[in-house]
């Protein structure tokens, strides 16, 4: 709930100025009924041109059930988080930092497995903030390296291989494979840093790099961590597919339907955020189980 509320409050704070701009722009227009029904292309292109800043992030894809989600998935593939302007970029960075702060508390909560106390939660969050920030920075650098170094290199290699090909489907599938490889790399990096955070807290390490080293050893020495994350990602994709389908069916043109759409969107987001938190708890559980098994094996050997 803390994570969800953070998300709502944070997004609402950024959305409010846009809503006021929108309202000031549309509320009196004779086109407002048309705009309430479906996005008018003429209105949309004029709005983003005249109002700039956040208005530039308004686009027809938001009208589609899957549009908002697909736009964000594309960001994961390409890493161009600044493509929506500085306001969104800074909001995103601040939000990630806030999440990094909360992660320390959440992971401690799962590792200690005691009843929830806000005081303890925030205390742990503050205690591990330094390490979580270090992980965040390091992870950011690694991902930046992937998006700005490895990915262009990979696609440049793809281009050099496919430049002589006149088979468009072949070129298309090779490019698709390139994107899949990029997302796989991102997935591995995220998994490594997830377990580094868990190891740091569970093993009470004082060095983030040591924890990261142990995480690399843990993740690459067994299949379960990747498997678990793949499973959780699969569930999230399934959930998003169902949600996107529902959003595609609902046409929010009247007030009631807009409210219904809003509520369903919030339910979906709550579930998605819960999935992320559940991901942390299952990762903690998996790590603890694996460590316990290791201990037993060692004892047996002794």
């Amino acid at each position: 709930m803390v994570f969800y509320l953070s998300n709502v409050i944070f997004a609402a704070a950024v959305a409010l100025p846009l809503f006021l701009t929108l309202n000031g722009q549309i509320a009196y227009l004779t086109m407002r009924s048309e705009i309430a029904q479906h996005p008018s292309y003429a209105w949309w292109s004029g709005f983003r041109f005249h109002d700039g800043c956040l208005a530039e992030t308004m686009r027809p894809s938001l009208n589609s059930g899957f549009g908002p989600m697909l736009d964000n998935v594309e960001l994961l593939f390409r890493g161009n988080f600044n493509s929506f302007g500085l306001t969104i970029l800074f909001a995103g960075l601040a939000y990630i930092f806030l999440m990094a702060f909360l992660n320390g508390g959440a992971l401690s909560q799962f590792i200690e497995d005691r009843g929830f106390s806000m005081q303890r939660f925030l205390g742990h969050s503050g205690h591990y903030l330094r390490h979580m920030s270090a992980f965040l920075t390091l992870q950011g650098l690694v991902l930046w390296g992937i998006y700005r170094g490895i990915s262009p290199l990979l696609f440049s290699m793809i281009d050099s291989v496919t430049v002589a090909s006149v088979s468009a489907p072949l070129v298309w599938f090779v490019n698709l494979a390139g994107y899949i490889l990029v997302i796989k790399l991102v997935f591995i990096v995220v998994t490594l840093f997830d377990y580094a955070r868990i190891i740091l807290i569970a093993e009470k390490k004082t060095s983030s790099l040591t924890a990261l080293g142990l995480s690399v050893k843990f993740v690459f020495s067994r299949l379960q961590p990747m498997g678990l994350n793949a499973l959780l990602a699969g569930i999230a994709i399934l959930m998003s597919t169902i949600a996107g389908t529902i959003f595609s069916i609902i046409h929010p043109s009247g007030l009631f339907m807009v409210i219904l759409s809003f509520l369903l969107q919030q339910v979906y987001l709550f579930l998605l955020i819960s999935m992320r938190v559940a991901c942390y708890s299952t990762e903690v559980l998996l790590y603890q189980q694996q460590m316990a098994e290791n201990q037993q094996v060692k004892k047996r050997k002794h």
């Binding site: 998300n7 709502v8 944070f10 997004a11 609402a12 950024v14 959305a15 846009l18 809503f19 929108l22 309202n23 549309i26 705009i35 309430a36 996005p39 992030t57 308004m58 938001l62 009208n63 549009g67 908002p68 989600m69 736009d71 964000n72 960001l75 929506f84 969104i88 909001a91 995103g92 939000y95 929010p252 043109s253 807009v258 759409s261 809003f262 969107q265 987001l269 998605l272 955020i273 992320r276």
Partner: peptide, 15 residues
């Protein structure tokens, strides 16, 4: 209506 759609996109983006 459009504020809600945009808010949803932003929340999803943050997540």
């Amino acid at each position: 209506r459009w504020g809600v759609q945009w808010l949803f996109w932003l929340q999803h983006l943050l997540e």
